[in-house]
Design a protein around this nucleic acid. Sequence first.
RNA 1: GGGAGCUUAGCUCAGCUGGUUCAGAGCAUCUGCCUUACAAGCAGAGGGUCACUGGUUCGAACCCAGUAGCUCCCA
Length: 888
Amino acid sequence: MEIPKTYDPKLTEDKWYAHWMKHKFFKSTPDEREPYTIVIPPPNVTGVLHMGHMLNNTIQDVLIRRARMLGKNACWVPGTDHASIATEAKVVALLKEKGINKTDLSREDFLKHAWEWKNKYGGIILKQLEKLGASCDWDRTRFTMEDDLSDAVIDVFIDLYNKGQIYRGVRMVNWDPQGLTAVSDEEVIHKEVNSKLYYVKYKIEGHTPNPSQEGNVEDEWITIATTRPETILGDTAVCVHPDDERYKHLKGKRVIIPMVNRSVPVIFDTYIDLTFGTGALKVTPAHDINDYNLGVKHNLEVIDTIAANGKMSEAAGFYIGEDRFAVRKKIAKDLEEMGQLVKVEDIKNKVGYSERTDAVIEPKLSMQWFLKMDNISKPALENVLNGEIKLIPEKFVNTYKHWMENVHDWCISRQLWWGQQIPAWYDDKGNTVVAKTHSEALEKYKIKYPTSNVQQLKQDEDVLDTWFSSWLWPISVFDGFKNPDGADINYYYPTNDLVTAPEILFFWVARMIISGYEYRGKKPFSNVYLTGIVRDKQGRKMSKSLGNSPDPIELIEKYGADGVRVGMLLCSPAGNDLPFDESLCEQGRNFSNKIWNAFRLINGWEVDNNAKQGDANKIAIEWFDAKFNEQLEIINDLYSKYRMSEVLMTTYKLVWDDFCAWYLEMIKPEFVDGKSLPIDKETYDATINFFEKLLKVLHPWMPFITEEIWHLIGKRNEKECIIVEEWPKTRNVNTEIVKHFETVMEVITNIRNSRKQKNISPKEKLQLFEKVNQGEIIKTYDAIISKLCNLSSFEYVNQKVEGAFSFVLKHAEYFIPLSQNIDKDAEKERLTKDLDYNKGFLNSVQIKLSNEKFMANAKPEMIANEKKKQADAEAKIKAIEEQLTSLN
RNA sequence: GGGAGCUUAGCUCAGCUGGUUCAGAGCAUCUGCCUUACAAGCAGAGGGUCACUGGUUCGAACCCAGUAGCUCCCA
């Protein structure tokens, strides 16, 4: 069979994925093994796979595949999130294209459209994950709005309401005038923008001469600074700092709001920043959270001048029905005409935008449902601080702590239809009961309001925040609410690792921890691995709107899933951003090819059952065995610390450098008369064994190519797949040999370097002489040096070899006689450079050793080591000096 | 305004308890090779004042203080 020179992922990926599915290798059911569980961060059901998902899910797949190989019962639960705002926005837009307005539809009809849309497009992202190789247990696929999960959400709402944790009230919320819904604090993105700061003067009621304002007898004014003059119409006070000398005389005074001519009090509060603007603040309790708080404190009137759609309301009195931003310009002009606009400055300030619609958030008072966070969040804080739940990297603990200590009540209602409708029922007077169904509600109502004869209650129109369902995810996917003592929940919960983006640490992770302790009394997971954000080369976050995100599926087609997986993970330390560049995938693809060709080489060998194993092969095997074990220990350790990209890099070097570049070159049969000599069976078997172990270590990262080669390299039946093979075990090996080999490699590199410098073809055989100056002569590795350097002879001498090219190592000098003449000046220059370096080095060591304080304070092994360094350097200097004299 | 973090080679990053020839890796670059597994490759080489200033120490990329720049989170 002809094996192609390059690895073609297209021929293997779909084949093996189907094969794994057919044999249910991803499937998990509780058994006696130790479980290893990951629940997927459910992507938005509307979403398509982007680079962030790729990174995330590759890491999860690596962890799952390794756990499976470690003999654990690996269970990766997939699913999607109904994403109320995002999905509803998409459906609304789609309907609009068809000429249908959401407002013209009944709730039922709208939801019908939405479900239709979900059923048609909702599965795309999961299909895409298959392309990546994700080994999820697809039989467990869940959706946050499916019946069981919705039931759990409603039950939890009712339970928390009954516990007094949920309340309804008028609060200042972040209002999205485009999405026409409240959004949570976490869904507001603050961006710095260029704004204008308007200085507007308000007339002070009555006539009060002010000594500091000469000539202003008739009227007195106070100037305030604001970036939002359109809210002036809703002002109900002006606030200054009690210590501000400029305004002390205004105690008890009132000012007149321009345009509306409303008389409002001047209030005093230490909240005011004396240095900002004029030190006087207009107070609009309806449209600013801080003003709202001042309003509560000082008992101010609240005038809501901006309607839900961002246009001025009746209450504004002016500009009714006009957009808030248009009014901002208009009112500035009108104030100027009235002579009350003092000046306008350009400033930079932060403005909140809706994460989902990118509309400028309008702080707005509205009736919403809230979850009290102060008590319920306590175990979640505690158990992260005490390490019961680990955040990786650890630096996020600080951020987490800060957030959890300043947590606000969670606004859980959303003015949408797509989602779980709030199970609260009202009569026409606003009396409320909370119950799952109308009949249950009615029963409760009758008990609560026995005198009323109302027969029909109206359910709350709003739905719950999406996170109010996804915070139950690790419990609900195992039916922990429906069946709290079920086999699944008892076996899989708490899960092991959660892999997600730091952006949703509070949105999601913290809340899952909260619900985990509230409903299971246990953490939902032990480790949270926080990935970075995938950015483009210019450091911009990859996003659809910027169009700077490559299509992952196209990347997979171009470089293979394995190549893309490797590319993404090569440089993505936990918690650090990943500056993505397609060339990384190229590196991944090249690595696939390297592995493929190692396979081709080994596969092409003819095995001679009778041939005797040579010494070189024997020692090479011994070395690689030791090297592999050493590196596997490092890899296992790095895994335990979740240093994923370091695991990958270590594996990469082990395969490419140690196995391909060194080991295979050492044992590769010679080529004679246009034919490769056969290889002895012992070496062949050992090599296959090594290669298989390497494939196993590679498998979590590169599942497809490893499975393909696994089946090509040995006779295996359908079920004997690498995906379910056992992770290689480490054992005690000869570590001495690894150290010896470092010297061997140094010798080889030096000889190759000499060839290069002297322009000698690798085909030309060389003689090598070694003069050992220190320690015993070890001839064990000579055969390997001879082979890799193409030597004709390798002899030991006691004397220098005249007229030969030479180099000096710690323990010995090496001579390569050359047919051509030695360039003495060049040699001298090279040796002098080397000599200077070693003398400098010796000097620094000697300074240390002659330092009394060092000798008194340093650890004994440190001193011994310095002494050894001194002896080595002295020996080397001596050898170099002798060579220099012999050149003269 | 409050908080957290970062600054090491052209790029992306390691560097653990201060001490091994500790200044590293991968990529990129340069040079020579189409050497019968792989040019998506092989061999070799050159790149750094560890942001800056001071301090602690026998010894600092590492600890401390200050300065500058950058990033993120919260208000």
